[in-house]
Amino acid sequence: MTALARLLAALFSRPATLAMMAATALGYALLFLWLSGDIAGGGRGDVRLSITAWHRMFESRGPLRFEPVGLVELGPWVWTLSPLDTLIALGLGLLLGGNLAGLWLSRRAPAACPRRAPASGGLAALPALLAGGACCAPLLVVWLGLPIAGGLAVLAPWLIPLAYLALLLGLVRLAVWREQQRHQARGGGR
């Protein structure tokens, strides 16, 4: 776990990677909330905040979907505020951002292994992107009204936990790889 702690310290200590992670988390959360229907158009153009139902925060309305506790209106946008849905979306976005920022760091690192293929770093982003899209892709299919939406509905309860697991495993794998590269760079390899 020290490898993961070092990777996280490296990601959070650099302003560029921190900004990349924050932008990814915010963008992913907004997309997730919009596709799930928590954010929609229809506002009257003013700014209004009404939070009245804190007692409903832990009530479930589906697999890993929770009841809204209030309404936020920002110009033309209306957000039915569900704090737990928002935390789930931000968590996935932060993990996705961490994977992408870690990939960016690894691509900038000098190659210590002569057998490393030049495009292998780009392939490392594929699991992160697939896991990050695991939540939004089914929602997008439903939103577009495509016929395969019924088949994806059966998988929906599993996609969010699987996306979390895949993104966490991606960060661990990246951390272990960075430790191996660090060890080889110090002359401990082969």
Score class of each variant (00 low, 15 high):
3 A>S: 08
7 L>V: 09
11 L>A: 10
14 R>F: 03
14 R>L: 06
18 L>N: 04
19 A>S: 00
20 M>F: 11
20 M>D: 05
22 A>H: 08
24 T>A: 09
24 T>Q: 04
26 L>Q: 03
28 Y>W: 13
30 L>K: 10
36 S>M: 06
36 S>E: 05
41 G>Y: 15
42 G>D: 09
43 G>N: 01
45 G>K: 11
46 D>G: 14
46 D>P: 04
47 V>H: 15
48 R>P: 06
49 L>S: 11
50 S>D: 15
50 S>A: 15
52 T>R: 15
56 R>S: 13
56 R>G: 09
57 M>T: 11
57 M>G: 02
57 M>V: 09
58 F>K: 03
58 F>L: 12
66 F>H: 05
68 P>S: 11
69 V>S: 03
69 V>R: 00
73 E>S: 03
75 G>S: 04
75 G>V: 10
76 P>F: 02
77 W>M: 14
79 W>V: 08
80 T>S: 11
80 T>Y: 10
81 L>N: 03
81 L>H: 07
85 D>R: 04
86 T>P: 02
87 L>K: 07
88 I>N: 02
91 G>S: 09
94 L>K: 01
96 L>M: 12
97 G>L: 03
100 L>I: 15
101 A>Q: 01
103 L>K: 02
103 L>P: 01
105 L>I: 10
106 S>C: 06
107 R>I: 06
107 R>Q: 05
109 A>C: 10
110 P>C: 00
111 A>Y: 09
112 A>G: 12
113 C>E: 10
114 P>D: 06
116 R>C: 12
117 A>Q: 08
126 L>I: 14
131 A>I: 03
133 G>I: 06
136 C>A: 15
138 P>T: 09
142 V>W: 15
143 W>K: 06
144 L>W: 14
152 L>V: 04
157 P>Q: 07
159 L>N: 00
160 I>Y: 02
161 P>N: 10
163 A>D: 01
163 A>P: 02
165 L>F: 02
165 L>V: 02
173 R>E: 14
178 R>H: 11
180 Q>F: 13
181 Q>Y: 13
182 R>I: 05
183 H>P: 07
183 H>Q: 13
186 R>P: 05
187 G>P: 09
187 G>K: 04
188 G>M: 03
188 G>H: 11
